[in-house]
């Protein structure tokens, strides 16, 4: 006769509690993200659906040139005739972001290549924590530095008409994204297996050729991800640009003009706006715009990183 063994499944309460806790924390993160988006997004709806608000502000006024005598794009939400073009704000944001990236990406990626490929161990142990420490500097301190110190230096060197401008703000902003880009790039380079380096050196390549020809291509997806992250951070960063950009919503392509960014506009104006006014809904529209733009940027970045990885490593 066959022996039948009954396994009594013990109620493993402890494991169940832990698992539920971990799972719910993940759910909470996602749900709060969705709720934030829904709340901010809900406040923009009148711009699309309320006929009263639409008379004052609508997509046409927000984005398209207006038939006026002097300026086609103007952000003047509290003048007698409020003007709600967010084009100058978008241009301002892009200008500071571009400067920040031009300043931070080469520095951060260069430093990462140096520490992972060329620096002796003691120097690496010095540089890496130093740059990572920069990530801990509050952005208000960086903004302060940009406003007081950096602006004065640059003003003395270049004698610009406007002391606070896109370049000043962009460089201060660059200091904020530098550690992020550096850390992610360094991790990507360090993750490149040593067998690649050995293989290259054994073929008679020198250290430079190895870094350029093998290590960089291998780490390219990670480096690109670092750039995407840096872009997103620079695009949404508020305090530094609020302090160091001059905050003038000017539609100009000159980098030496003062600028105002999308994020700084929300920060300065939301506290004093009349709740339920066209201005109020417009600020929420800007918030949603930032949210969606950053979201799309990250998705596209992810997608491109995947593609790059597939092309290099042949993963399916």
């Amino acid at each position: 006769m066959k022996k039948i063994i009954h396994f009594r499944v013990k109620p493993r309460i402890k494991e169940w509690i832990i698992e539920t806790l971990i799972r719910s924390s993940a759910v909470i993160v996602i749900v709060s993200l969705i709720l934030i988006f829904l709340f901010v997004g809900k406040e923009t709806l009148p711009i699309f659906f309320s006929s009263e608000i639409k008379q004052e502000v609508n997509l046409n006024r927000l984005f398209l040139p207006q038939a006026r005598q002097n300026e086609k794009f103007v952000w003047q939400p509290i003048s007698t005739v409020p003007k709600y073009s967010i084009i100058p704000l978008i241009i301002g944001t892009l200008k500071t972001t571009i400067i920040a990236l031009l300043f931070a990406l080469p520095l951060a990626i260069g430093a990462a290549i140096f520490t992972s490929e060329f620096a002796p161990t003691w120097l690496r142990e010095l540089i890496k924590p130093a740059i990572e420490l920069l990530a801990g500097v509050p952005s208000v301190v960086l903004g302060f530095f940009g406003l007081i110190v950096l602006a004065t230096w640059l003003q003395n060197i270049f004698s610009w008409t406007f002391r606070l401008n896109a370049i000043t703000a962009g460089i201060a902003l660059g200091l904020a994204i530098l550690p992020v880009v550096y850390t992610v790039t360094e991790d990507a380079l360090s993750a490149v297996p040593n067998s690649y380096r050995e293989g290259s050196l054994a073929l008679g390549a020198n250290v430079w050729q190895t870094a350029w020809g093998v290590v960089l291509p291998a780490a390219l997806p990670g480096i690109f991800a670092a750039c995407v992250l840096g872009f997103g951070r620079a695009f949404g960063e508020t305090m530094i640009v609020l302090m160091a950009s001059g905050n003038a919503a000017i539609t100009s392509l000159k980098f030496t003009d003062s600028v105002r960014t999308l994020s700084a506009t929300i920060a300065t104006e939301l506290a004093e706006v009349v709740v339920g006014s066209a201005h109020y809904y417009t600020l929420f529209f800007i918030g949603t715009f930032l949210f969606v733009f950053t979201f799309i940027n990250n998705i596209l970045g992810q997608w491109f990183v995947q593609r790059l990885r597939k092309r290099l490593h042949g993963e399916t």
């Binding site: 067998s195 690649y196 054994a202 020809g213």
Partner: peptide, 12 residues
């Protein structure tokens, strides 16, 4: 020249 224990073609 050298051939290694694990094949190490470059990610190219």
């Amino acid at each position: 020249g050298m051939v290694f224990q694990r094949p190490n073609p470059f990610p190219l």
